[in-house]
């Protein structure tokens, strides 16, 4: 969908073609992330962290994980890509509250996260490695593969069956990616995701509850009226 006849991707691609974006992926130009129909909302909001290749990856990812159906609009229409972009651009993405001193060892799984990467760096390098893997396996970047291939790739990633050559551990990348998709879906809408509180409406979560003293009895084993309230609604 083009808004105001302006294709962001086409513009960006022409601006960076052969430049830094290509270098990070090291895949042939012909199979690189191509302009797709970006949603109007995403286009209007812009990205603070994601570059075009990463934007394409994240948009494809969130629309795959949260497809449109009778229950909710699709991921980009819920702002999940915006949530992810803002998280990566902000303090959390930059490694706030992450002990970042070496030496760096892999350790054992029970010792938790041990990479010398902030979440933003993990995302950036993970997306590049994922695209290299997809090109090798499916001849196209993640955003251009078929839905079935995307599903196959994500399932393999989740199961730890994908090895990134010269990239971060694929499973750690997946864990972070999945966590941020779910956060985007269910965090307060003021963070950019969960647009129109669609994630909360999906499950019947009321959001900012103030008083429930009477409601425990009143709604015992009865549905609670679903009219979720966010922080912005009460500010």
């Amino acid at each position: 969908m083009k808004k105001d006849g302006f294709d962001r991707r086409a513009f960006l691609k022409s601006a960076v073609a052969g430049g830094a974006a290509a270098a990070t992926v090291s895949v042939p130009q012909s199979v690189q992330a191509q302009p797709t129909a970006a949603t109007a909302a995403a286009t209007a909001q812009g990205y603070a962290f994601l570059n075009p290749e990463e934007g394409a990856f994240v948009e494809a990812l969130v629309d795959h994980m949260v497809p449109a159906d009778e229950l909710t609009p699709k991921g980009t229409d819920l702002g999940l890509n915006i949530f992810i972009d803002r998280s990566l651009a902000g303090g959390w993405g930059k490694g706030d509250r992450l002990y970042m001193q070496g030496p760096w060892k892999t350790g054992v799984p029970s010792q938790g996260y041990q990479l010398p990467l902030t979440p933003a760096e993990l995302y950036r390098n993970g997306i590049a490695a994922a695209n290299v893997h997809c090109v090798k396996t499916y001849k196209k970047t993640f955003d251009k593969v078929t839905a079935a291939e995307r599903e196959e790739f994500l399932l393999a990633l989740q199961a730890g069956k994908v090895t990134f050559e010269n990239g971060p551990p694929s499973r750690t990348f997946f864990t972070t990616v999945y966590q941020t998709v779910m956060e985007g879906m269910f965090a307060d809408p003021m963070y950019g995701g969960n647009r129109n509180k669609a994630g909360w409406k999906l499950i019947g979560f009321p959001g900012v509850i103030a008083v429930n003293y009477q409601n425990i009895e009143k709604y015992r084993d009865k549905p609670f009226p679903v009219n979720p309230v966010g922080i912005a609604d009460m500010s």
Partner: peptide
């Protein structure tokens, strides 16, 4: 999920291991 009221591991954390034969690694986030 962002541990707003809690100890900031950037300043101080622990190292952890399951037994004495392991090399302890820092708990890099809570």
């Amino acid at each position: 999920h962002r541990h707003d009221l809690m100890q900031n591991t950037q300043r101080d954390t622990l190292t952890v291991r399951n037994n004495v034969s392991q090399e302890a690694q820092p708990m890099r986030r809570l």
